[in-house]
């Protein structure tokens, strides 16, 4: 009974985890280099950026929205921060500036959607272009590179033998989980996605909370920008292209319904890892990038199909 209820509650995440384990087992069998601690830390580091963006995307999709602008917001907040650093701003100030720029772009999305009543697809499509253009204008189209070691430590530093980006990812997911399951913002996110009208008629400030959800997505994109910039020692105005698709894919693989109202944050983390493991494994196997794209697409489809089959079986 206990096990059954556990499965009912977390069934979707367990399915995703099962896919991840299956995939890892297959890659373990195929490549001698796959199953090692250093490779898993490697995968975790590579996954961190997409996973952090996807955490914000999960909030947005649970609220029955979509955010196409995360990649562009990443680029804009990245070049702004990089320029500040090069102008001699202290690191904490530059980081704060980066997060503020991201959150502001996100809240602009939120205001357009909640107050302007624009469909999320349109509002964030516009922001995708606006923020990208702003990043190019701001940086004059050139990458901004070369930072102090203190800043770069964010990406290549370690704590307890585990790289900092992995810790940051873990912290983001822990906090996101608590926010989603234990706070009013989290509850209202589900409620708005499940039934906006009923939520509105329950006296919830729907506009405010929608705006908060998009701001959060922007903030997390900016956090990803910090990691990416520190990792490459360069902020590019063209960075983050197609990142929105990766984030949406991780979220959907993780079992969040595009219709809204349903989803678990750890499902998204597993989804991001499935994509990371796949890319890593295919690299290790020397598979060409053309084949990689096909395989990743197929896995997205299989994961979602598998989930639908399990769901049918459960109900």
């Amino acid at each position: 009974m206990r096990v059954k209820s556990l499965f009912l509650q977390h069934g979707r995440q367990l399915t995703t985890l099962f896919v991840l384990i299956l995939l890892s087992a297959a890659l373990w069998a195929l490549s001698p280099h796959f199953m090692s601690l250093s490779n898993w830390l490697n995968i975790a580091q590579q996954t961190a950026i997409n996973a952090i963006i996807a955490a914000g995307m999960t909030f947005v999709i649970i609220s029955a929205g979509i955010d196409l602008s995360v990649g562009s917001i990443l680029a804009l907040s990245g070049v702004v921060m990089a320029s500040a650093l090069q102008a001699g701003a202290p690191v904490p100030l530059a980081l704060l500036l980066c997060l503020v720029v991201g959150a502001l772009c996100g809240s602009a999305n939120g205001l357009l959607i909640a107050r302007g009543k624009l469909p999320p697809f349109i509002a964030t499509l516009g922001m995708m272009s606006v923020a990208r253009g702003a990043a190019l204008i701001f940086s004059d189209g050139r990458p901004v590179s070369g930072f102090a070691p203190g800043f770069r430590a964010i990406a290549n530093g370690e704590f307890l033998a585990i790289p900092l980006p992995v810790w940051i990812m873990a912290a983001v997911y822990l906090i996101a989980h608590l926010v989603l399951s234990r706070t009013r913002l989290g509850r209202y996110t589900y409620a708005i996605g499940g039934n906006e009208e009923a939520t509105l008629l329950s006296g919830v400030n729907v506009k405010l909370h929608k705006t908060l959800v998009y701001s959060l997505a922007g903030l997390l994109s900016a956090l990803a920008a910090i990691l990416l910039t520190a990792r490459l020692n360069s902020a590019q105005p063209i960075a983050g292209m197609n990142y929105e698709l990766d984030a949406i894919a991780a979220t959907v693989i993780g079992g969040t319904s595009l219709l809204g109202g349903e989803g678990q944050i750890f499902g998204t983390l597993i989804g991001a890892f499935i994509m990371g493991v796949l890319r890593n494994g295919l690299n290790l196997l020397g598979v060409s990038s053309f084949v990689q794209q096909t395989v990743i697409g197929a896995v997205i489809i299989v994961a979602v199909l598998l989930d639908m089959m399990m769901k049918k079986r459960r109900s």
Binding site: R184, R187, Y190, G194, N195, A198, L201, S202, G261
Partner: peptide, 21 residues
């Protein structure tokens, strides 16, 4: 169903939706 309840939220969450504060 259309305006009264958030169907995929739990009984507890629906009961407390209007007074969560």
């Amino acid at each position: 169903k259309g305006q009264g309840l958030v169907l995929n939220l739990a009984v507890r969450e629906n009961i407390c939706l209007a007074s969560l504060a």
